[in-house]
Every structure is written in C-alpha cells, then in structure tokens.
Amino acid sequence: YMKHPLQNRWGLWFYKNDKSKMWQDNLRLITKFDTVEDFWALYNNIQPPSKLSSGCDYSMFKDGIEPMWEDRSNKCGGRWLITLAKQHRRTELDHFWLETLLCLIGEGFGSFSRDICGSVINIRAKGDKIAIWTSNAENCETVTYIGKKYKESLGLPQKLVIGYQAHADTATKSNSITKNKFVV
C-alpha cells in the first residue's frame, strides 16, 4: 500500500497570541506533509479551530512560504476573505476550514492552483476569519476564478458576496476597513 502523494508539500503553522513575545516568536511551524495519509494523520490529531482560544491562528502554506505578508511569495498577493459571525463558530467554522484545506491539498483550482500560497484561519472574539492567500493580486483572471471556485466549494449562496484584498492595501490601511480589489 503506497501513500498518495500530493502535488505540493505543505506546512501547518500555529500562532498563539502571547504579548510577552515578539510576533514572529509566537508563530510556529508544527509540521510538514506531502501525502493524503499524512495530511489526515495530522488533521485528526490537532484541535479543531472552534476549540482554539481567541487570538490563535492556524495557517497552511506551501513548503517554503511563511504565513506572513513579508514573504517573497506573498508580497504582491492578497487574500479571499471569509468572515464569520460569532454564532457560526459552532456550526460552520470547522467545516469551512476543512473544505478550504481540501481545496488546497487537492489542487482544487486546477492550473490556477499555481497561484495559491496558503490559507489562514484567525480565531477572534469579534469574529473568526478564514482566508485563501494567492501570490499575485494583479492576476485578475486567476484571482477571480479562485474566488468563484472557493465560494462554490464552501457552498456559500450566490448572493453572498466575498471580497479579495491585496496585502499591500491591508498593510497600509489607516482604519480597520480594507477595500476589496475584487468581489465574487
């Protein structure tokens, strides 16, 4: 019996908000994997996002990409962002996160998967967030395709609009609202 190799090797990261440490010291690579079987071995052994405490993140990125704007692969990119109201933590959060991971490891965006960098889930008291990060916010066709396919994969209703934000805009925003570069 052979394990099923993935197209990419992925790293799973965990962030825990500890104000006594520097931001980057709070971010830890848990492990890397590159087969379907190893993905599940990992997934089945970690806390689901809904059980994490507020201020924590999981990130899953292609090997060699760190889950931060500054990484060379992310610098010119952006994210499709899903925000969840508090009451959806119990019902939707873990489900959305798993669907997101399956889209990534299964290369669910076809040839456009090349632009995928990774995904981040933020557990926050004011509302949880899940995002798919891509490498180039100017690749209109690619970004739009990924957004449409992602929305479909999560089973979101057509009329619900999700937005794509360039990291450059998020990083330089002066208030808490970042403008959407694309919407689907």
Binding site: Y1, M2, K3, H4, P5, L6, Q7, T35, V36, E37, D38, F39, W40, A41, Y43, N44, E99, L102, C103, I105, G106, E107, G108, G110, S111, S113, S153
Partner: peptide, 20 residues
Amino acid sequence: GKRQYDRDFLLGFQFMPACV
C-alpha cells in the same frame, strides 16, 4: 501530470490507517 484530488476522494482517506 498534476496530482489533483477531489474532496470526496480525499475524505475517503480520513479514517484509514496510514500503513507506510
């Protein structure tokens, strides 16, 4: 070729023991 797996295929392995 590209190793693409759809969700149902991936979900089929969730509770399988990894032997290798």
